[in-house]
Nucleic acid binder design. Structure first.
Lengths: 211, 211
DNA sequence: AGTATATTGTGATTTTTTTCACAGAAAGAA
DNA sequence: TTCTTTCTGTGAAAAAAATCACAATATACT
């Protein structure tokens, strides 16, 4: 398996979402420029990205929506699906849960964890909250490989290390610090504050540029 | 004003956070490789990024922490600071509020908006929740240029258009759809589901690659 | 059947981002 | 003072990502 460019993966995921909408509306075929318009990129880029999934279109009728969805699924999903742990069941964690509970068949949050004893046992969106002590056991039992990290910054590094210890291989990190981990662990950062600072900067820059 | 590379802005924001920590610990100087280790990138990259802020280091003693923070602030902040609107005061919106309320002096959420009448008037983290009807008025009065969008997907496009109508120039979008807006509007997407799919893909890819 | 048209698929090119690598410089030691 | 060390600053090279541009081709029309 060859790893596909990072950015392409993100766009493919977006295309799939858009294609599923089209499918629900009964659309059978799309052109690269349709997808491009919807996704906010160029048609050439869509076609390049689609080259990765090994599903080809027709010069006159474009791509088959169903076929394309399947091809993207083949690249992005495993047939069995993946279990995900949500670690840190505070406000942010609780708010994120429905994002996944809704749509996803292949990426399912199957356990949440928190250090607060009051939350243990709580069931939300169909999954139970476990204690941090049972982290390793539950993760192993449920064969979880991916975690979403939404704990307070002070304990994030320590918890991340526990996750590695429990054999987690990929982390979606919402904690605004860079985790220091062995680099065979996949870490994707969602730094909200940094993103907002970037918006502020770019907004200002867009107004100040004169060329 | 020349716009600096996107990625550099993100890293600069991260450096600043790390530098502030160092400052609190009483550290006066840092080397590029210190920052690199902390931020998870290379020393050469740190130095490249720092070239953008026009603050130079000393070949033997590295960079002055205080001076560096100031230089980064000059690039990222305005002296007066920016007001931010949080549009969609549901679970996610509420969870995000403390992220900013805590630290930021220069980026302050000064108003939240929601369509649910029950929420109007509610005060949280020092800012009031207004009705969607008063959006344009409040945003104009408070001179807000940036918005965080956390409304349900079904209404996101429509609300985004209202925001533009109200003169918002930059949007941090948490809604998992690509907004269709004039391209002089800055949109930064935080697509949680896509990010998780990417983690899942990369995790699998890292395990399957054999070369 | 032949022609026109609109789209795909992809080499080639350009742009952007990252990394390399080293001259120049500051501090401390001899 | 001179030497040594260890860093910075930055041109140059490499790698990654996006865009261009066009031959190949499927369909519809005449």
């Amino acid at each position: 398996m060859k790893t596909s460019p990072n950015k392409s993966i993100e766009r493919l995921s977006m295309y799939r979402r858009l294609l599923r909408e089209s499918e629900n509306e009964g659309t059978e075929n799309v052109y690269s420029h349709d997808l491009a318009d919807a996704a906010g990129c160029t048609a050439a880029q869509v076609r390049r990205d689609l080259m990765l999934v090994g599903c080809s279109g027709n010069p006159k009728t474009g791509y088959q929506v169903k076929g394309l969805i399947n091809c993207i699924c083949n690249l992005l999903d495993t047939p069995e699906g993946d279990s995900v742990a949500l670690v840190g069941f505070g406000n942010l964690g609780k708010a994120l849960l429905p994002f996944f509970a809704k749509h996803h068949k292949k990426l399912v949050i199957t356990a949440t964890f928190d250090s607060n004893p009051k939350k243990i046992g709580e069931i939300s969106n169909g999954c139970e909250c476990y204690s941090m002590e049972s982290l390793k056991k539950v993760i192993s039992e449920k064969n979880i490989k991916i975690a979403i990290l939404t704990v307070p910054a002070e304990v994030a590094q320590e918890v991340a290390e526990q996750l590695i210890e429990a054999n987690i291989q990929g982390i979606l990190n919402f904690v605004p610090i860079p985790l220091q981990l062995k680099n065979n662990i996949i870490v994707e950062n969602m730094h909200v504050e940094i993103a907002l600072e970037k918006v502020a900067y770019l907004t200002r820059a867009a107004n100040t540029i004169t060329d």
